[in-house]
Design a protein around this nucleic acid. Structure first.
Length: 606
DNA sequence: ATAGGGTTAG
């Protein structure tokens, strides 16, 4: 009985199917569909008829036949039909369960796959390596660590820790859940490793900002002569270079890409575009991008964000226009980049216009992230009231609002708008987010308008609440050396030179028309073994001169950022390089020749 | 029936 009614349901489902209607419509109008769609439709008809035949005959077919049908539907992206077949099965086996789970992941519904896994564990069917790999993948997509750990436990329980595919999927899962150390533990315990396992681990490091570790692992892979890196691995390696901001490694990685013949791969090229932008080599970023024949939305977005970082807001806007003309659809990230670009190039009116046309012209509804960019844009040029109004008008979930209110806070601090700074800080403190930033910035805002009583009071409250401000740290790579500096570290070897450099840069910035936001009072913290001191100074540059911040890299980065805003990044880089180069001899200049010839071997990496 | 890569606001 069930079968008969199901046949009826199927028929109506068939008739309701969008593709079925398409077929009927095209037949009726005598119009041909696109070849691919037609093929798909025919395939779907075939699947439907197999399905209907099986049901009408009333003889329950073999489970294997049903599984084939499930997979056919999954391939055709008809997950609900796959599910119907599955639900009709009197005795689904492990393949039926796994196929359906994989189908739900492919359909973008990984939570459903995990739900099915739970149901399966309640049945008599036991999972095998395919099921657990699929379940781990669902956790990876969802970044669901809790469930991921349970899957890991099941892998152990079913004795599958020696399976390379299962373990690679666990490495990937832990990586995507931001548990790189756990990923590494699984990776190290693997006896059999293949290129996928290595790539998963390298990608896990690269994606969590541990570029050096990623590169080291890549070096190991090459050193052990485990094979040639493929485009998957190289994309991750290039990504590792961007996340460590290392231009030297990046160029060598580019050499490796050329050497192994993966220049034409879209994903690798996108990673290179991003890497050159992040490592401060914009002309190469552009070069690599322009070499791509049909850049997709991702490289376009990388380019837009890259141009924005160099103060080339008009170029970003031009790129948006160009991609739309070429039929590449911008996405939410693209618009984040565009708004970021407008913000950093002072293109406020363009930015507001973009915000308005995003949904109308491009079908992208702005979310909190986009509004945060606009708040930043308005706040940056001092239109605090409008920024505040906008921030208040947005409905945000508490866990989403920290960036929004943090942005507003830093803008109001910059412009000495204590009342807005207070409200923004209170929002952050109330929602227990970014506490140290909230306290410090509000305290700085009070200090800026000369209200020392409140400034000190906040510091006291902060201490009382047990909130600790982590020491700032940054680094710069010049030629072959990385210089790391941390705030409060007084061991700056070339303080005087840096101070005169900063003065020089300041002069150049003024010529370029950049009005530094911080000309008034700033707060400088000196935290050395619990010691804390509040100092009011004329500017951060002076703070540096007094030795209170001795962070050339920290300061140079800041200056570079400022210079980028007025389009003088190269100048800054040149001057800084000159200073540092005098003392440090650049090692192994020939590497660059290797790179130029495209014959750089990966073992030259270090 | 199973595993890996690129863009994300302050």
């Amino acid at each position: 009985m069930k079968t008969t009614s199901f046949a009826g349901n199927l028929l109506s489902a068939l008739k309701n199917s969008r593709r079925w209607r398409q077929i009927q419509l095209s037949k009726f109008h005598g119009r041909a569909l696109h070849a691919r769609k037609l093929r798909e439709s025919n395939d779907l008809c075939a699947a439907f008829s197999t399905h209907a035949r099986a049901l009408k005959s009333g003889i329950p077919g073999s489970t294997a036949a049903a599984n084939r049908l499930i997979n056919r539907y999954v391939e055709l992206r008809e997950i609900e039909h796959a599910r119907r077949v599955f639900e009709e099965l009197p005795e689904p086996n492990v393949v039926s369960w796994t196929s359906l789970m994989a189908g739900y992941i492919a359909a973008g519904r990984p939570a459903m796959a995990l739900w099915l896994y739970g149901r399966m564990r309640g049945s008599e069917v036991l999972p095998n390596e395919f099921t657990l790999t699929t379940a781990a993948k669902a956790c990876s997509v969802l970044a669901d660590l809790r469930m991921g750990k349970r899957i890991h436990a099941h892998v152990e329980a079913f004795g599958l820790r020696g399976n390379v595919v299962v373990c690679s999927s666990l490495v990937d899962m832990y990586g995507k859940c931001n548990e790189v150390d756990e990923a590494r533990r699984v990776f190290d315990l693997m006896v059999d490793k293949n290129i996928v396992s290595w790539t998963s681990m390298i990608a896990a490091y690269a994606q969590s900002g541990k570029g050096r570790e990623a590169l080291h692992l890549f070096w190991e892979f090459n050193h052990l002569r485990l094979g040639f890196p493929n485009h998957f691995m190289l994309a991750s390696v290039v990504n590792a270079c961007s996340s460590s901001g290392s231009l030297v490694s990046g160029r060598i990685a580019h050499g490796a890409v050329i050497r192994y013949g993966h220049e034409a791969n879209d994903v690798v090229a996108s990673a290179l575009v991003d890497m050159y932008a992040k490592c401060g080599y914009f002309s190469y970023c552009e070069k690599v991008f322009r070499r791509m024949e049909n850049p997709s939305v991702v490289p376009y977005t990388s380019m837009i964000v890259g141009a924005a970082k160099y103060g080339l807001g008009m170029l970003s806007l031009g790129l948006l226009e160009e991609m739309v003309d070429r039929g590449v659809k911008p996405n939410d990230v693209t618009f984040l980049g565009i708004l970021h670009a407008c913000s950093h190039s002072g293109l406020v009116d363009n930015g507001l216009e973009i915000l308005e046309f995003m949904p109308k012209k491009h079908g992208i509804i702005p979310d909190t992230r986009h509004y945060t960019c606009v708040v930043d844009m308005l706040g940056r040029i001092g239109r605090l009231d409008k920024a505040y109004e906008l921030a208040k008008s947005i409905q945000v979930r508490p866990e989403e609002g920290a960036l929004l209110w943090g942005t507003l806070l830093s803008a109001s601090r910059l412009h000495g708008r204590v009342e807005i700074a207070t409200e923004a800080s209170n929002w952050l403190i109330k929602s227990n987010q970014q506490l140290s930033g909230a306290y410090v910035m509000l305290s700085n805002a009070h200090a800026m308008v000369g209200d020392w009583k409140n400034a000190h009071g906040l510091r006291f409250r902060m201490k009382h609440a047990g909130v600790h401000k982590a020491r700032g740290c940054s680094w710069i790579e010049i030629k072959n050396m990385t210089y790391v500096f941390s705030a409060g570290d007084l061991r700056c070897p070339r303080r005087n030179e840096v101070v005169s450099l900063l003065k020089e840069l300041e002069g150049k910035m003024k010529v370029k028309g950049y009005m530094g936001g911080i000309e008034g009072l700033v707060f400088v913290e000196v935290e050395e073994e619990g010691q804390e001191e509040i100092v009011s100074l004329h500017s951060e540059r002076l703070a540096l001169a007094f030795g209170l911040i001795s962070t050339p890299k920290w300061v140079t980065m800041r200056i570079m950022k400022n210079l980028r805003m007025c389009g003088a990044c190269h100048e800054a880089f040149k001057i800084i390089s000159e200073i540092v180069e005098r003392e440090f001899i650049v090692r192994d200049v020939n590497r660059f020749h290797h790179f130029k010839n495209g014959s750089c071997a990966c073992r030259d990496f270090w």
